[in-house]
Simulated assay, not measured.
Amino acid sequence: MTQVLLGENEGIESALRRFKRQVSRAGILADLKKRRYFETSQEKRKRKAVAARRQKRFY
C-alpha cells in the first residue's frame, strides 16, 4: 500500500506529487487497468504469445 507522510511545512501539492510518483512507480494504475475487465484463459494465452513474439523480435 502506498503511503505518503507529510513533513513539516510541506504543502499538499508536493505531497500529492510524491504520492502520484509512488503510485506510478509501483505500477498500481497499470495493474488496475489490466484487471478492469475479465480475461479468459484463451485471451491470456494469446496476449502472452503476442508479447513473447514482440520480445523475441527485439533480441
Results as ranks from 00 to 15, higher is better:
Met1Asn: 09
Thr2His: 10
Gln3His: 13
Gln3Gly: 05
Val4Ile: 09
Val4Asp: 00
Val4Gln: 03
Leu5Phe: 11
Leu5Gln: 09
Leu5Ile: 08
Leu5Gly: 13
Leu6Thr: 12
Leu6Tyr: 09
Gly7Ile: 00
Gly7Asn: 11
Glu8His: 09
Asn9Thr: 05
Asn9Asp: 10
Asn9Ile: 06
Asn9Glu: 03
Glu10Arg: 03
Glu10Asn: 05
Gly11Gln: 01
Ser14Gly: 08
Ala15His: 00
Arg17Asp: 04
Arg18Asn: 01
Arg18Met: 00
Arg18Leu: 01
Phe19His: 03
Phe19Cys: 01
Phe19Leu: 02
Lys20Val: 01
Lys20Gly: 02
Lys20Arg: 07
Arg21Asn: 11
Arg21Thr: 02
Gln22Gly: 03
Gln22Val: 01
Val23Pro: 00
Val23Asn: 00
Ser24Cys: 07
Ser24Asp: 12
Arg25Ser: 08
Arg25Met: 12
Gly27Phe: 00
Gly27Pro: 04
Gly27His: 00
Ile28Lys: 04
Ile28Arg: 03
Leu29Ala: 05
Leu29Tyr: 04
Leu29Asp: 09
Ala30Pro: 02
Asp31Cys: 12
Asp31Ser: 15
Leu32Met: 07
Leu32Asp: 05
Lys33Leu: 08
Lys33His: 09
Lys33Gly: 05
Lys34Glu: 11
Arg35Phe: 06
Arg35Glu: 14
Arg35Lys: 05
Arg36Ala: 06
Arg36Ile: 02
Tyr37Trp: 10
Tyr37Gly: 14
Tyr37Ala: 15
Phe38Trp: 15
Phe38Gly: 15
Glu39Ala: 07
Glu39Val: 08
Thr40His: 05
Thr40Asp: 09
Thr40Ile: 03
Ser41Arg: 05
Ser41Leu: 08
Gln42Ala: 10
Gln42Lys: 12
Glu43Thr: 04
Lys44Gly: 04
Lys44Ile: 10
Arg45Met: 09
Lys46Asp: 12
Lys46Leu: 07
Arg47Ile: 04
Arg47Gln: 10
Arg47Leu: 05
Arg47Val: 02
Lys48Val: 08
Lys48Glu: 10
Lys48Asn: 07
Ala49Tyr: 11
Val50Ala: 14
Ala51Val: 12
Ala52Met: 13
Ala52Cys: 14
Ala52Gln: 15
Ala52Lys: 15
Arg54Pro: 02
Gln55Cys: 06
Gln55Ile: 06
Gln55Val: 05
Arg57Trp: 09
Phe58Val: 10
Tyr59Asp: 10
